[in-house]
Design a protein around this nucleic acid. Structure first.
Length: 905
DNA sequence: CAGCGGACTTGCCGCAAAAGCA
DNA sequence: TGCTTTTGCGGCAAGTCCGCTG
């Protein structure tokens, strides 16, 4: 479609259909992080540590590219979002298999083999193909076109409903499709290869093959059903069987009887409140509180239900046992408390944490014990060498030297910037006339070795010793771990003050290597409720910089970042806290609301692609990229930060238009992670980009009339509260739900878990969540390959024996020369089958490993996927939620545990 | 309305504990 | 049981976005 779209003039007209857009996106992801690429402006490697090597291993594969194929028209395939589907699904397109894998058979359906593509794309790939497809796509695109130009977009009347379902609901990317080949947008991942190293390898394999297949067909297959919308049929959803919460197992969630209260998990969100605010913080007892968050939505729930149990430990909620106990314990009191609370006028106001409350009040009472400082430096006395001779250093000088010495084996020490910054700061501590003048003459090895041996010693400690140490530490930290917010005991997130060290900026950070000085109490501002004891300053003779009582913020303490004094380091509550849970929930609700506006928004920006007003045109194109590719907004950055970009800060050199309608993206994004993707776009978009580039140099801003505040101001006109990042959340959650709907087919628990992981992976690729390849990756792969070789040898032997057995002959001698037992042909056949299964399993394992070696699944799970989608899916498919969420996530998402099985994003 | 302070979310990594495996 | 691999989790850097100010 994409192509066509362009072609057609009427684009704008049909938007309705949806489908949209162009399509091809791909991203290569792999590329790696940092890899830098070409763009001149950006720097190459990033943080040292991480660089990504190009990595792609020889195998090449690595890089897989993902291409996504898109389906052609959306119509055809209803649900498919391009993005998603592609690879994930077995169909997968995006990816190409890794080249080397031995097998790559994708045959197995089970594993989704998608090759991922993130990595390097094949060079040229697909564009062409895409082109072909494009035609198809065209129509779709047109859909997008705005029907009319209304300015303000109104949400559909029925919000989630299906109404529209059509594709609008889908992320563009998803829609896209088609046409173009694999690349894709958001969904797309793909990769064509963009440049970069990666490219190498990608085998044409399946992917290609798939490519040829109309997306629609590909996707459809499985999903036929629900894809398009996200809704599940109600019938399906509700399964009577499910227990209490719907969760199949008795997991945590289910602790309470159905009608009663919400699940424990939930409880954690709303935690119990201590009986009185006055309760000493340290007390561990659970208190109970009722939550009332008023507004929140939940509010429909009777208070009683919402009571939370005490969360004794943060994790409590997660762990069943403990939570259960506590919960019970607490419940009664909590109820009381609730009542009490309600009565008290004092609380009434804010008891709810509603962030949304107009006045901005975040809490009414707040108690905590402040922060804990790292221990003072203990000199080790190991002397480093200068010009080959031992040097005496004061403890302060030695401390800094040690910071550097322990980094001897990191990439940082290969960076000039790091060394320079370090030396400048160290020199200040050494003093002008110190013997040490040049870093090159320094030999930190003795200190490095001392450090290594300390590490080794620690490692060698017996488990009892380690346990004792841990307990000791816990004992010291215990009091700092908790805060009491509105009477509820909540876990504190980061109560440890950051220790001094050398700044490890990511990418080519201009300040890397600078000394991050020790933070003292008088650097710290404490925020605490009025009338409660101010935390005692743990360092004798010193005092806090300031004590505030600001209930419009959620931080408990902050200090100025020593590297960037205008920035702050905050101490917040943990993710499992009610305060965080509440805002997390609001975030997802907002993204969900976007679903009701998305169609109108797409229509509007499509219309503006050709606006005469250059500002409008830039806003339209930027919004399109954010929607389709899930790009970040891209705030301006200072010169003293790494040179990375987002949508609004893309440089001309970051986006290369390749006729007829392909855009090749290559830039370093957040954390200096490289984003590479080739996407087929609508002709008007393509033209607009060409025009934005004209007359500019490579390092000039592509969107010169735009910045994030203008963009967000515009978005807010389209939907209340809408900002650029909401699209990422929307696209991620939407894609997850869609993929789950499409791919879930029943089967064993393990199969379902695999489906979820595939869906999760799709999202990670869309969001460009990467990770560095583990050091042992190639070793692991070769080990597995060796295993396969062994099994194959065994297999051959069995085959020979089988043939002989059929003729009545005894088996050949084993490798060890010993005679083997006589087996019947049937028994031998069985062995052969078993061995084949083993080989298949290992091959699958290799594939999965390769596919995921550069993909980080955790980030999207923690930040972008509405947990209710996961919980509802688990309930519907009888998958224990613990399979999907670990203890931390269970606690963090306690607010989502009671969702109905029929929930749809 | 640009600039900036300020508050909060997002993101990758490394280490250690846990789990898996021979 | 000992070793390897995976998972969990903390650390802290790096984004987003808001609202105030001049």
């Amino acid at each position: 479609m994409a192509v066509e779209a362009f072609a057609k003039t009427n684009l704008m007209e049909d938007i309705d259909d949806d489908d949209d857009m162009p399509l091809v996106f791909k991203r290569s992801s792999t590329t790696s992080k940092q890899n830098q690429s070409n763009s001149s402006s950006q720097k190459q490697d990033g943080r040292s540590g991480r660089q990504v090597p190009d990595v792609r291993s020889p195998n090449g594969q690595s890089s897989s590219t993902h291409k996504v194929k898109t389906a052609a028209s959306s119509k055809a395939s209803p649900a498919v979002s391009p993005l998603t589907s592609p690879k994930a699904a077995p169909l997968s397109s995006r990816t190409s298999p890794a080249p080397n894998f031995r097998t790559s058979p994708a045959p197995n359906s089970r594993t989704p083999p998608a090759p991922n593509s993130r990595t390097s794309p094949a060079p040229n790939s697909r564009p062409s193909s895409s082109a072909g497809n494009q035609a198809k796509n065209v129509n779709q695109q047109s859909n997008i076109a705005p029907k009319e130009s209304k300015q303000a977009i109104e949400p559909k009347s029925e919000p989630n409903d299906e109404a529209e379902d059509s594709e609008d609901d889908k992320p563009l990317s998803a829609r896209v499709p088609s046409g173009l080949s694999k690349s894709n947008s958001i969904h797309a991942n793909n990769v064509l290869g963009t440049s970069t190293s990666v490219q190498k390898s990608r085998p044409p394999k399946k992917e290609d093959s798939d490519d040829e297949i109309p997306l629609a067909s590909r996707f459809q297959m499985k999903s036929s059903a629900g894809a398009s919308t996200s809704k599940f049929s109600s019938s399906e959803e509700v399964k009577p069987k499910i227990r209490q919460n719907g969760l199949p197992s008795a997991t945590v969630l289910s602790k309470r009887p159905p009608g009663e209260v919400k699940s424990a998990a939930q409880a954690s969100v709303k935690k119990p409140r201590l009986s009185d605010a006055s309760t000493p913080v340290s007390s561990k007892q659970p208190s109970v509180k009722t939550e009332k968050k008023t507004e929140d939505d939940d509010d429909e729930v009777p208070l009683s239900q919402r009571i939370k149990k005490a969360v004794a430990s943060a994790s409590a909620s997660a762990s069943k046992v403990s939570s259960v106990k506590k919960a019970t314990k607490v419940v009664s009191s909590s109820m009381k408390k609730t009542k009490k609370k309600l009565k008290k006028p004092k609380y009434s106001k804010s008891s709810k944490l509603q962030p949304s409350s107009g006045d901005g009040q975040k809490w009414t009472t707040l108690e905590h014990n402040g922060v804990i400082f790292p221990p003072p430096y203990k000199p080790h006395g190991v002397k480093m060498l200068y010009k080959g001779k031992p040097v005496d250093l004061t403890p302060e000088q030695e401390e800094v030297a040690t910071m550097y010495a322990v980094m001897l084996d990191t990439e940082y020490l290969t960076k000039q910037q790091f060394k320079e910054n370090f030396m400048n700061d160290w020199r200040k501590i050494l003093g002008k006339n110190h013997v040490i003048q040049k870093l090159e003459e320094c030999n930190f090895t003795p200190i490095y070795e001392w450090h290594q041996s300390e590490k080794e010693k620690k490692k060698q400690m017996s488990s009892e010793e380690k346990k004792a140490l841990r307990e000791e530490k816990l004992k010291q930290e215990e009091k700092y771990m908790w805060a009491i917010v509105d009477g509820v005991k909540e876990k504190v997130g980061n109560f440890r003050v950051e220790p001094p060290g050398l700044f490890r900026g990511r990418g080519e950070h201009p300040k890397m290597g600078k000394l991050k000085r020790r933070i003292r109490p008088n650097d710290i501002t404490i925020n605490i409720g009025k009338g409660v004891p101010v935390p005692e300053c743990p360092i004798p003779g010193q005092r806090w910089k300031e004590v505030r009582h600001d209930n419009t913020v959620t931080w408990l303490a902050f200090w100025n970042d020593p590297i960037n004094p205008r920035e702050f380091k905050y101490v917040f509550l943990a993710a499992s806290s009610s305060l965080k849970g509440q805002s997390d929930k609001e975030k997802y609700e907002k993204a969900r609301r976007l679903k009701d506006y998305i169609e109108g928004i797409r229509s509007a920006y499509t219309k503006d692609f050709t606006s005469k007003d250059p500002v409008k045109r830039q806003i339209a194109v930027a919004t399109y990229l954010i929607d389709k590719l899930a790009l970040r907004a891209g705030n301006e950055k200072d010169d003293d930060e790494a040179d990375t970009v987002g949508c609004c800060t893309l440089k001309v050199e970051n986006v290369e238009p390749v006729p007829p309608n392909i855009l090749k993206f290559d830039f370093l994004g957040k954390d200096s992670i490289r984003y590479q993707n080739e996407v087929a776009v609508y002709e008007p978009v393509f033209k607009a980009i060409q025009q934005f580039r004209s007359g500019k140099k490579g390092g000039d801003d592509l969107f010169d009339k735009l910045d994030t505040s203008k963009l967000n101001a515009h978005l807010k006109e389209l939907m209340p509260g809408l900002t650029a990042k909401v699209f990422r959340t929307y696209n991620a959650s939407f894609t997850l739900e869609q993929q789950l709907t499409k791919l879930t087919q029943g089967g064993e628990l393990a199969d379902k878990v695999a489906v979820y992981n595939v869906a999760n992976k799709e999202v990670a690729i869309i969001c460009n969540h990467q990770r560095t390849v583990s050091k042992s990756h190639s070793v692991q792969i070769s080990r597995l390959n060796e295993k396969i070789d062994e099994l194959k040898a065994i297999l051959e032997e069995f085959k020979v024996d089988l043939a002989r057995a059929k003729k009545g002959k005894p088996p050949v001698k084993g490798a060890d020369g010993k005679a083997k037992r006589n087996l019947t042909p049937e028994a031998l056949q069985k062995k052969i089958d078993q061995t084949n299964v083993k080989i298949d399993n290992i091959e699958r394992q290799i594939e999965t490993k390769e596919e995921l070696k550069t993909v980080a699944l955790g980030t999207s799970k923690i930040n972008y996927l509405d947990p209710r989608i996961t919980v509802a899916w688990c309930k519907r498919h009888e998958v224990p939620i613990e399979k999907m969420f670990n203890k931390s996530l269970l606690a963090k998402f306690a607010w989502a545990m009671d969702v109905e099985p029929s929930f749809t994003f």
